[in-house]
Protein backbone atom coordinates (compact mmCIF):
# COMPACT_ATOMS: atom_id res chain seq x y z
CA UNK A 1 0.00 0.00 0.00
CA UNK A 2 1.31 3.44 -0.91
CA UNK A 3 0.35 6.41 1.21
CA UNK A 4 1.23 9.75 -0.34
CA UNK A 5 1.29 12.93 1.72
CA UNK A 6 1.41 16.37 0.18
CA UNK A 7 4.34 18.43 1.38
CA UNK A 8 3.61 21.42 -0.88
CA UNK A 9 3.63 24.84 0.75
CA UNK A 10 -0.07 25.04 1.48
CA UNK A 11 -0.32 21.60 3.11
CA UNK A 12 2.94 22.22 4.88
CA UNK A 13 1.39 25.20 6.60
CA UNK A 14 -1.64 23.10 7.54
CA UNK A 15 0.60 20.64 9.33
CA UNK A 16 1.60 18.00 6.80
CA UNK A 17 4.88 17.67 8.66
CA UNK A 18 3.05 16.59 11.83
CA UNK A 19 0.98 14.10 9.86
CA UNK A 20 4.11 12.63 8.31
CA UNK A 21 5.68 12.21 11.74
CA UNK A 22 2.54 10.66 13.20
CA UNK A 23 2.08 8.22 10.32
CA UNK A 24 5.72 7.20 10.40
CA UNK A 25 5.40 6.51 14.11
CA UNK A 26 2.13 4.58 13.78
CA UNK A 27 3.40 2.49 10.87
CA UNK A 28 6.52 1.56 12.80
CA UNK A 29 4.66 0.86 16.05
CA UNK A 30 2.22 -1.45 14.31
CA UNK A 31 4.99 -3.29 12.50
CA UNK A 32 3.63 -2.29 9.08
CA UNK A 33 6.85 -0.91 7.60
CA UNK A 34 6.94 -3.67 5.01
CA UNK A 35 3.32 -3.17 3.97
CA UNK A 36 3.04 0.59 3.85
CA UNK A 37 5.19 2.86 1.77
CA UNK A 38 5.04 6.53 2.80
CA UNK A 39 5.82 9.03 0.05
CA UNK A 40 5.84 12.77 -0.34
CA UNK A 41 4.40 14.73 -3.22
CA UNK A 42 4.01 18.37 -4.16
CA UNK A 43 0.69 20.12 -4.46
CA UNK A 44 -2.05 17.91 -5.84
CA UNK A 45 -4.40 20.84 -6.22
CA UNK A 46 -6.87 19.78 -3.58
CA UNK A 47 -5.69 21.81 -0.65
CA UNK A 48 -8.82 23.69 0.36
CA UNK A 49 -10.07 21.29 3.02
CA UNK A 50 -6.91 20.08 4.67
CA UNK A 51 -3.69 18.24 4.04
CA UNK A 52 -3.97 16.04 0.98
CA UNK A 53 -3.23 12.40 1.67
CA UNK A 54 -3.89 9.59 -0.74
CA UNK A 55 -3.99 5.86 -0.10
CA UNK A 56 -3.21 4.20 -3.40
CA UNK A 57 -5.58 6.23 -5.60
CA UNK A 58 -8.11 7.38 -3.03
CA UNK A 59 -7.87 10.99 -1.89
CA UNK A 60 -8.41 12.22 1.68
CA UNK A 61 -8.10 15.55 3.43
CA UNK A 62 -6.61 15.37 6.89
CA UNK A 63 -5.74 17.53 9.83
CA UNK A 64 -3.05 16.48 12.29
CA UNK A 65 -5.81 15.61 14.82
CA UNK A 66 -7.56 13.16 12.48
CA UNK A 67 -4.41 11.26 11.72
CA UNK A 68 -4.79 8.49 14.26
CA UNK A 69 -8.38 7.69 13.25
CA UNK A 70 -7.39 7.81 9.62
CA UNK A 71 -4.57 5.38 10.25
CA UNK A 72 -6.79 2.93 12.11
CA UNK A 73 -9.56 3.01 9.52
CA UNK A 74 -7.94 3.55 6.16
CA UNK A 75 -4.52 2.02 6.62
CA UNK A 76 -4.64 -0.57 9.35
CA UNK A 77 -8.29 -1.33 8.64
CA UNK A 78 -7.69 -2.02 4.97
CA UNK A 79 -4.65 -4.13 5.55
CA UNK A 80 -6.41 -6.31 8.10
Amino acid sequence: MTVTICIGSSCHVKGSRLIVEELQRLVAENGLSDDVELKGTFCTGNCVKGVCVSVDDRLYSLTPDDTKDFFEKEIKGRLA
Binding site: I7, R17, Q24, L38, K39
Partner: peptide
Protein backbone atom coordinates in the same frame (compact mmCIF):
# COMPACT_ATOMS: atom_id res chain seq x y z
CA UNK B 1 12.38 27.64 8.28
CA UNK B 2 9.99 25.43 10.27
CA UNK B 3 12.33 22.53 9.80
CA UNK B 4 15.33 22.98 12.01
CA UNK B 5 17.18 19.88 10.86
CA UNK B 6 17.92 18.33 7.50
CA UNK B 7 16.26 15.06 8.49
CA UNK B 8 13.07 16.94 9.40
CA UNK B 9 12.90 18.54 5.98
CA UNK B 10 13.44 15.43 3.92
CA UNK B 11 12.19 12.55 6.02
CA UNK B 12 9.38 11.82 3.63
CA UNK B 13 11.46 12.26 0.48
Amino acid sequence: AYEKTITDAIKIL
